[in-house]
Amino acid sequence: MINKKEVVLEVKNLSIDIPVSQGILHPVDNINLHVERGEILCVVGESGCGKSLTSLAIMGLLPKNAQRTAETLELNKEDLQELTERQLADIRGNRMAMIFQEPMTSLNPSFTIENQLLEPLLRHKELSKDEARNQVIEMLELVGIKPAEPRLRQYPHQLSGGLRQRVMIAMSLLCNPDLIIADEPTTALDVTIQAQILELMMSLQEKFNTGILFITHDMGVVANIADRVAVMYAGQIVEEGPVSEIFDNPAHPYTRGLMGCIPVPGKLGQDNTLGTIPGMVPSVVNDFQSCRFGGRWDENYKENFEPCRLTEVPKKRRSFKVNLNEKHLVHFCCDECLHLSEHTLVEGSS
């Protein structure tokens, strides 16, 4: 492995606030993450944990009523917060591309595949139409659409789900971006197609050395493609580290709970039942006074167990980071949880 990798995306202290009638929602609360060139960072979490909003915030595509605040938000050392809407539009689809869950909604139904694929090239690169067309054909063949020529004249609805997603991948790679943000790109696909698409994404990523921020809820996908994993829970990243560390040595009770919920043959508890995480995700309205994970500890976590039920956490002490090793980071929302997890606070972390 190369030691010093180039950081493509750097996010520090990103928060999103959405005012609603009951107060202020904090769907994303002070998260830090980075993506290096040529790596896949998987952000994994359950619905409502803020993972999709995070991706929208990075792209600057948040809904109008949502406010984004961040200490750092840099694509290749360029501050995305300072850019005008126009400059941002130039970056999106060019140096930062996205792939969504349902390609039908991101492909315009009334234009042919050719029109849609040519558009970003003609817009961002100074190419003649013929050159651009050749590049499009080359890229379509690269994503496994062979022969590409007849597909160019087709409309999105004439393609199957898998083919559409391939077209989206081709589209995202056309301008050779530094970063691809993929939000659940295979969730709507059948398992065999999902495997093909993921394999394709990995081989192309290797070829083009792009960084990928991959958002998913599927632990199977994570285990198979990720280099690093960030686990999100209730608007925070609770654990972050290399994929093998996260799966083999999960440290946060939420990550452990999540792992126990997935049916894996041969990995079940006694009497063949799946693990569960008791309770529900707290609503993210207003500032958290209590522990976010309070009451949701699984009793199997350790013996003589008494779950954290802190209802008042002093504001100053609501964030604890533990470095298990250089790369593996765990984040606790209160000192009670930290204490329960039997990890020790590393000096210098906040």
Binding site: G23, M280, N286, R296
Partner: peptide
């Protein structure tokens, strides 16, 4: 970050949705 008066979370059990 704006701080608004917090809702009292202790009044509700974890399983309740306030709909």
């Amino acid at each position: 970050m704006t701080i608004t008066p917090p809702l009292s979370r202790s009044q509700q059990t974890a399983e309740e949705i306030l709909e």
